[in-house]
């Protein structure tokens, strides 16, 4: 493989990373918002929220991506392919992040909330100042796991022409015909990026759990 191709793939990798990071931020923030809204338990909000979560979990990311990229484009809102991917993958992932937060909220004893209320904090104040901060150790491992997932699903951006790693890989394949080689490089890059991360998250998870129980 020419060094030109390798550099090209690595550039694609940077774009992939960018998409994954962007989507991760969207997912973490939107997921928190969804979880807090549900927790506050205002009935109509909760109904909207839960149908939104079901919807996001049931529609393929690729279809969301097409809606944001082609759909919005057709009604006059032009979004570039990278931004569309960040939004689509992030929004889809938020449905799952919300679930991690919710599970995290349940680890905080009810009396903690009562203590917050007794100080005169509002429901939102109790959430943001008492509950959420205590939840963070529990949500960090699953959120990191979802980052690993996003690194992989970021390849979907190729479908709307974002110059991420798989898109460039496909171009390199048709240019050079070195299909197996290009694919091997992509796989090696992925394994090198995700395996240590996955391992680290597993270690972190164990530590959080033993900390919580210890």
């Amino acid at each position: 493989m020419s060094s030109q191709t390798l550099v090209d793939l690595l550039r694609g990798g940077v774009v992939t990373l960018k998409i994954a990071c962007g989507a991760w931020v969207v997912s973490a923030v939107l997921g928190l918002a969804l979880a807090v809204l549900q927790d506050l338990g205002i009935a109509p909000v909760r109904a909207v929220q839960s149908s939104l979560v079901i919807g996001l979990r049931s529609v393929p990311q690729l279809v969301l991506l097409y809606l944001l990229y082609f759909g919005l484009g057709a009604v006059g809102i032009q979004v570039n392919s990278i931004l569309a991917a960040i939004l689509a993958l992030g929004i889809a992932d938020a449905a799952f992040s919300a679930e991690y937060y919710r599970a995290g909220f349940m680890t905080v004893p009810r009396t903690q909330r009562e203590a917050g209320f007794s100080l005169g904090l509002s429901p939102v104040g109790v959430m943001m100042r008492v509950v959420v901060p205590q939840t963070i150790p529990f949500v960090v491992p699953p959120l990191l796991n979802s980052f690993v997932g996003l690194l992989k699903t970021a390849t979907l951006a190729a479908a709307v022409g974002a110059p991420e790693i798989l898109y460039r890989g496909q171009n390199a394949m048709s240019r050079t015909g070195q299909l197996v080689l290009v694919m091997t490089v992509i796989i090696v890059l992925y394994v090198a990026a995700t395996m240590p991360l996955t391992r680290a998250v597993a270690v972190l998870e164990r530590r959080v759990r033993s900390h919580a129980h210890g």
Partner: peptide, 13 residues
Amino acid sequence: DLMRSIPLLALLI
């Protein structure tokens, strides 16, 4: 471990 670190789309392609 290996399979879970490869993007599905890459495998399909």
